[in-house]
């Protein structure tokens, strides 16, 4: 038993992903430069950052302000509305089938995130723990498939869902997640590889089944990576525009997701399309579609940053 391979230390786990709660380390200041000069440098740096931060926050502040303005003032660029119209937030529900859109979006995003987390972690455990012929080849295929441009399979995938009889439903928007997703599988495999193999061998000797290894040991230990995958997919699904555009655009507006609905509202409210230019409702809807993402980010910031950072640290 002593010759069991100790699991490879995964670079992902070792490479210390950026943590939200850890102070960012400063490179040692050059010993030659004077203290005053350094302080000036620090102030300039902070001023620059503050300026960029203001520029990055401005569009969101602008959106919040615009969502509270009456029709004629949406374009006036005031961050504090001249006239505050709280009724926008009441009337938007009558103006647009927003409730149906939100329900659709939540349902699809929850289904996608749950299914892709389960399927990807099962497949990832398969690649991390088991030894079987052609494993390297299959894993190479998986990595290569991440490079495949999504635009290339758009048309045939549409035909596949059509031939399965799922056009007109929202199944095409989440059905693919049943099969796992290459990037998430890669991400979770890294975590499973950092679990010492002895742990699994010991459980095997105690009579644990293979699925038991996954359910009782691997998955609970790698729960943080599952959270990353869940949050990533929830966001991706919530924000997705192309898939609803292709699969839902031909149904009634009640079937839309929020992003597709907003695009629809932008068009129907436009004066060139016979609307009255009620863009304040588009702004309310845009704010409402953004808000859940900001809340999720507030709670899961660490996971988002870690997940993104680890994507680049593989090399």
């Amino acid at each position: 038993m002593s010759t069991l391979p100790v699991s490879q230390p995964s670079r992902l786990a070792v490479a210390a992903p950026v943590r939200a709660d850890r102070p960012i380390v400063v490179p040692a200041p050059a010993p030659t430069s004077g203290g005053a000069l350094r302080r000036v440098g620090r102030i300039v740096r902070l001023l620059l950052l503050a300026g960029v931060a203001a520029a990055f926050l401005y569009p969101l502040a602008w959106l919040l302000a615009a969502s509270l303005k009456p029709r004629g003032e949406v374009f006036d660029n005031r961050l504090i509305p001249q006239t505050v119209v709280w009724e926008n937030y009441v009337q938007v529900w009558d103006q647009l089938p927003l409730l149906a859109w939100i329900a659709n979006s939540i349902g699809i995003a929850l289904a996608s995130a749950t299914l892709v987390t389960l399927s990807s972690s099962i497949v990832a455990f398969g690649f991390a723990y088991f030894r079987f012929p052609a494993k390297n080849f299959l894993f190479g295929l998986l990595l290569a498939s991440m490079m495949l441009p999504g635009a290339v399979t758009l048309v045939p995938n549409y035909l596949i869902w059509k031939s399965l009889g799922f056009l007109g439903t929202n199944v095409p928007l989440w059905g693919g997640t049943l099969f796992g997703s290459a990037f998430y599988i890669f991400l979770m495999r890294q975590f499973y590889l950092s679990v010492p193999r002895e742990l699994f061998e010991a459980a095997r000797i105690d009579g644990c089944s293979y699925f038991g290894l996954f359910r009782r040991i691997a998955f609970p230990l790698a729960l943080p990576s599952a959270v990353i995958v869940f949050l990533f997919e929830f966001q991706a699904s919530w924000n997705n525009f192309v898939a609803p555009l292709i699969y839902l655009n031909f149904g009634t507006p009640e079937q839309y997701t929020v992003p597709l609905g907003i695009a629809y509202a932008m068009t129907t409210f436009s004066p060139t399309a016979g609307g009255h230019g009620d863009y304040q409702y588009v702004m309310v809807a845009s704010l409402l579609v953004t808000l859940p993402m900001l809340v999720i980010f507030a709670f899961g910031q660490r996971y988002f940053i870690e997940g993104i950072a680890s994507a680049g640290l593989k090399g």
């Binding site: 926050l57 924000n239 910031q301």
Partner: peptide, 29 residues
């Protein structure tokens, strides 16, 4: 950001918010 001692977390959060904003909202803004 890499050279900032205090407030780096705050700035990073601010810079990341647009990334969380759905493209359709970004477009309407």
């Amino acid at each position: 950001l890499n050279g900032v001692r205090r407030g780096a977390g705050f700035f990073r959060t601010v810079f990341y918010l647009p990334k969380m904003t759905p493209t359709v909202a970004t477009a309407s803004i």
